[in-house]
C-alpha cells in the first residue's frame, strides 16, 4: 500500500442541530488519537478554536437548514469542500425541528418568542441535500460513532463505506434479539427503519423509534395496518412516524395519511 502524501483537511460544520452528532467524533475515545493522526482537523469549533482556512478535503455537516442565512452559508461550504458528508437526522431529513413543517411556523414564533420581530426563520426545516449536492449521507439521531469512523476510514482509503440501508430487523436477528412486536405486541418502527444503530432499542426491550430514518424500501402503509392491529389509533400512528425523521418522505407521507388535519 502506498504511503499517503499529506493528511486530508477535514472540517466540521453545524446548522440547526443539538451538536450530538459532531460530538460523536469526540466520543471516539481510543480511536480519536488514530483519527487525529490520519486527518487534519482544520475547522471544528466544537473541539478547537484553531481554525484553518479552506478549501477542505472533507466536510462533515451537521444540522438542517432553517434560516435564510444558513440557506446561503451551506453553498459557501459546498464551494470550499471537495467531498461533503451530512451526518445525522437533522442534516439528512430535517430533524425533530422539521415538525414545524406540518404547521405554520408563524404560529410558533408568536407564542415562543417575546419579540417575534427579531426572528428571521424559514417556513420549513429542510435537509442539506435539498440545497446542495451531498456526496454521502450518514443516518442516525444521533449517528453511530462506529459508523462515523467507518465513513471517515472509507473516505481516507478511497473505498465505499459499509453502511447498509436494509431494515433494522436484520440487525435484531443477527444479534439474536427477540422481535418485540411479534413476541410482546410492542409498536416498533424496525421494519421500515434504516439499519445502523445495531438495533439498540429492541435489545433493551423497547420498540424501534426510527432514529435512522426510512430503510431502502419502506412499506409504511403495511406497518401502519399492523400498528392498528396492535391497538394504535391514527394520532398514535402520526406520532410514531413524526419523530426525528418526520420529514423524510416515506415517514412524512404516512403521517399525513393519518393526520386528521389533512382530512
Amino acid at each position: 500500500m502506498m504511503a499517503r502524501k499529506s493528511k486530508p483537511k477535514v472540517a466540521v460544520w453545524k446548522f440547526a442541530s443539538c451538536d450530538g452528532c459532531q460530538l460523536s467524533l469526540l466520543d471516539c475515545e481510543d480511536d480519536l488519537l488514530a483519527v487525529s493522526q490520519e486527518i487534519e482537523i482544520a475547522h471544528f469549533p466544537e473541539a478547537s478554536r484553531a481554525v484553518m482556512k479552506g478549501p477542505y478535503d472533507l466536510s462533515l455537516v451537521e444540522g438542517s437548514i432553517t434560516t435564510p442565512h444558513d440557506a446561503e452559508r451551506i453553498h459557501e461550504i459546498r464551494k470550499s469542500s471537495k467531498f461533503l458528508i451530512t451526518i445525522g437526522a437533522c442534516a439528512t431529513a430535517g430533524g425533530i425541528q422539521a415538525l414545524r413543517n406540518f404547521k405554520d411556523v408563524n404560529d410558533f414564533i408568536s407564542i415562543v418568542y417575546a419579540t417575534p420581530d427579531y426572528i428571521d426563520t424559514l417556513q420549513k426545516s429542510t435537509p442539506i441535500s435539498d440545497h446542495i449536492k451531498v456526496d454521502f449521507e450518514l443516518r442516525g439521531c444521533p449517528i453511530d460513532k462506529m459508523q462515523l469512523l467507518e465513513v471517515i476510514s472509507a473516505f481516507i482509503n478511497g473505498r465505499k463505506p459499509n453502511t447498509p440501508a436494509h431494515s433494522t430487523c436484520i440487525e435484531c436477528k443477527r444479534r439474536g434479539t427477540v422481535c418485540v412486536m411479534v413476541a410482546q405486541g410492542k409498536m416498533c418502527m424496525g421494519p421500515v427503519t434504516h439499519a445502523g444503530c445495531g438495533a439498540l432499542c429492541p435489545s433493551y426491550d423497547r420498540g424501534c423509534y426510527g432514529c435512522f430514518g426510512p430503510q431502502e424500501t419502506t412499506n409504511t402503509g403495511s406497518l401502519s395496518t399492523q400498528l392498528k392491529k396492535l391497538g394504535a389509533d391514527d394520532d398514535e400512528i402520526v406520532r410514531t412516524f413524526r419523530g426525528f425523521n418526520a420529514y423524510a418522505e416515506p415517514f412524512r407521507k404516512e403521517s399525513e395519511l393519518h393526520d386528521k388535519e389533512n382530512h
Binding site: M1, R4, D31, A34, V35, Q37, E38, L149, I152, S153, A154, I156, N157, R159, P164, A165, H166, I170, K173, R174, E216, T217
Partner: peptide, 20 residues
C-alpha cells in the same frame, strides 16, 4: 479497513434476498 489503511478485514454476515 481501519483508519490507518494498514489493516483490513473481510467479514461474512447473514444477508437476505429481501435487501436491495
Amino acid at each position: 479497513t481501519d483508519i490507518t489503511g494498514t489493516h483490513a478485514e473481510r467479514w461474512q454476515k447473514w444477508d437476505s434476498c429481501f435487501t436491495m
